[in-house]
Amino acid sequence: MSVQFYLFLLINGLSLGMLLFIIASGLTLVFGVLRVINFAHGSLYMIGAFLAYSLSLLMTGGSLFSFFVMLLVVPPLIAVIGFVLEYTLFRRIYRAEHLLQLLLTYALVLILDDLVRLVWGGDPRNVTRPEFLAGSVSFFGMALPTYNVFILCIGPAIALGLWLMLYRTRAGNLMRATVSYPDTLGALGVNVSWVMTSTFMLGCWLAGLGGVLMSSFANIDLAIGMEKIIECFAVVVIGGLGSVGGALLGSLIIGVGITWLPVLLASVGVQEASRWALVFPYAMMAVVLIVRPWGLFGKPER
């Protein structure tokens, strides 16, 4: 295999990783502030993808306009669903034991996934890419999908936006203060419940954005929620729970790993290489948990 080919795969892997980051950053943000791992995050991402699909049917396929409408409408809709879930369910379990939190979010996974099945059925769907992103750019003689390059640019923009929000705005200060001492923050006159609700909504917005981007990236079906939540979980464990920077690094590692490994393994003669590559996220997670249990960017628990 040529160096160019691996470079090509690297870029595809990075764009996959960026897509993963957009979703995983929401999961890690919610965990960081609310201390709950929302396993239903993947289901919300899937709902976002299917909503984008339904919306695309109402408009001219492949138009720039419809792509923008999807990007503008779907993530806020998922954030609103997040608002309802947080207000009615999640805020009751922040101080509960982990088992209860796990049961609630897992129950939500089952409910939401079945809802998707009811509404959209089991067939795989896809959304036509907008024309200007549908082609490919030539890269060392190989055709690199423009859409992948696009996602490769959106990812860092989201990372930068999140960083600025967390470290340069009052909203970010409030979120980071909530992580340490919510009661103290409340006594300072801050409505901490609202900070938590907003954080949860932002996390869901990111899941929705990931869903929209995914709907034009590859086929979507009923399995993508579960598939993505597992990858996201691996990402946040590798990067460190609650760390957005860690989620970025973790996503890129996973994205590049699952793109590279099948080729790499096949080239050294491993049978069924793509199946072996599926193990990669878990293997990485296991290695990190053994070597550095709090993740690459995380901090040991107090």
């Binding site: 203060a177 340490s180 103290t184 923050l185 006594a187």
Partner: peptide, 10 residues
Amino acid sequence: PEDRRIFPDL
């Protein structure tokens, strides 16, 4: 507060 509760990461 008596124990100051300065937000350590801020």
